[in-house]
Amino acid sequence: MSIITMIIIFVFLDFLVRMFSFESDIDVINMAKKALLLYAPSYLFTWFIMTVSGFLTRLEKVTSSIVIMLVESTSL
């Protein structure tokens, strides 16, 4: 699912950016494209972090799970 999401962002970059912006905002469009291209690869790691967090929760290591999720959410 992460790979599919990343591919969708790369293939439909222009469509996704223009869906949420006006055509006259050229600077905003260019910045949004750069931001999406930088952010898209993070989807490859998100599934792993969520899986590890769920595993730690199952092992009743809730504090470790919360720390991992907080660090992940603040790093994006």
Rank of each mutant, 00 (worst) to 15 (best):
F45H: 05
S75W: 14
L56E: 00
I7V: 12
S21G: 04
D14K: 09
F20D: 14
M31P: 01
A35V: 10
L37Y: 01
M69R: 08
F22K: 15
L36I: 03
E23S: 15
K33R: 14
F48G: 05
R18W: 04
I9W: 01
L36P: 00
K34V: 13
F20E: 15
F12A: 14
M19C: 04
M50A: 12
V28R: 15
I26A: 15
V17T: 03
T57G: 13
L59A: 14
L13A: 03
I66V: 13
L36V: 02
V67L: 12
I3K: 15
E72K: 03
I68A: 03
A32D: 08
A32N: 06
E60I: 10
V71L: 15
M19E: 00
N30M: 14
I4M: 09
I49D: 04
S75L: 15
F48M: 09
M31G: 09
S21F: 11
I7T: 10
E60Q: 09
T57N: 14
D14T: 09
F22P: 04
L37N: 08
Y43M: 13
T57D: 11
E60G: 03
F20Y: 11
L38N: 07
E60F: 08
S75P: 01
S2A: 07
R18S: 08
I8E: 04
I49P: 00
I49V: 13
I4V: 15
S65F: 02
V67Q: 06
E60W: 04
F20V: 13
K34W: 06
F12Y: 05
I26P: 05
Y43T: 08
M1G: 12
L70S: 09
M31E: 11
L70N: 06
R18C: 07
T51M: 11
M50P: 02
I3Q: 11
R58S: 13
